[in-house]
Amino acid sequence: MGRKVLVLNQDYSAFSICSVPKAFLLVYLDKAELVAESEQFMLRTVSAEYPMPSVIRLHRYISLPYKGVMLTRQNIFKRDGHHCQYCGTTDDLTLDHVLPKSRGGKTSWDNLTTACKRCNSRKGDYTPEEANLKLRQRPFKPTFLVFLREFSGSLEQSWMPFLTKKEKAFK
């Protein structure tokens, strides 16, 4: 049961993604309500059958001072589609500082990109222009909604109304 459930805050804004068992527990304990259920799957016990949650809404509003995407290696890879941003390969991927750290480059969304070991080694302590390499996509910091919508893997159709707020395009 590796399916995921979209969790909405009380105001119907996207809050997070959780597992089906966690979502079912929140609904069962009356901490959340079922907004949308899976059309294909049901949860079954020995004596009962329950709809499998697809979208749930929390009964209490949870205030998040900053709802951003954590800067992690896997999130950089997701943002870049698990492709080297110089040559496009999917083999031996690492992270590359576009402006090298030795030249004052920061470890940030705007300066980290996915690179294969070969391109990263070729680039070395140079900028992409100095190493005669061209970035396929400029690094950017995705917003929470953009990250959920574009990079979180498979999205359920029932999630789309809650993930389609107007935002700036990054590509």
Rank of each mutant, 00 (worst) to 15 (best):
L71C: 01
V69Y: 01
G68V: 02
T114W: 06
H82Y: 15
T72F: 00
Q85F: 01
T94E: 14
K123D: 00
Y86M: 04
G104V: 11
K117M: 10
T94I: 12
N120A: 01
L93I: 06
A115L: 05
V69P: 06
N75G: 04
P65T: 02
H97L: 14
T72E: 08
N111S: 15
R118S: 07
Q85K: 08
D92T: 11
C116G: 06
C84D: 07
Q85V: 05
S108T: 13
Q74E: 08
M70L: 11
S102H: 11
L112G: 04
G81H: 03
G81L: 04
N75K: 09
S102T: 15
G68F: 07
G104T: 12
V69H: 01
R103W: 07
D110Y: 08
D96W: 09
F77H: 04
P128R: 00
L93Y: 03
T127R: 02
L93R: 03
L71K: 08
V98K: 09
L95T: 15
D92C: 09
C116W: 03
T107K: 12
Y126A: 05
Y126P: 00
K78V: 05
K78E: 10
K123G: 01
T114Q: 07
V98C: 10
Y86D: 02
G105Q: 10
M70R: 10
G104N: 10
T107C: 12
I76V: 15
T89I: 10
T127C: 01
G104L: 08
C87Q: 06
M70W: 08
L64F: 01
N111F: 12
V98A: 10
K67D: 02
S102N: 14
N120D: 06
K101Q: 14
G81E: 05
H97I: 13
L95Y: 12
G88A: 02
R122E: 07
K101D: 11
L93T: 07
T94N: 14
T72M: 04
I76P: 09
L99R: 15
H82E: 06
R79G: 04
N120S: 04
C119G: 02
M70N: 11
K101V: 12
R79Q: 06
Y126L: 10
R118P: 00
R73K: 13
I76S: 03
L64D: 00
P100L: 12
P128S: 02
G124K: 00
S121A: 11
Y86A: 09
G105E: 11
N75Y: 05
D92I: 08
G88Y: 02
S121F: 06
T107W: 09
L64V: 07
Y126G: 01
R118H: 06
P128V: 00
F77Y: 11
G105C: 11
R103I: 09
K117T: 13
T94K: 12
P128D: 00
Y126D: 03
L71F: 13
Y66N: 02
D92K: 13
P100H: 10
M70D: 12
S102D: 14
R79D: 03
Y66D: 03
K106H: 15
K106A: 15
C87S: 08
C84M: 08
K106S: 15
T113G: 01
G88S: 02
D125A: 13
G68W: 03
A115T: 07
T113K: 05
L71N: 02
K101Y: 14
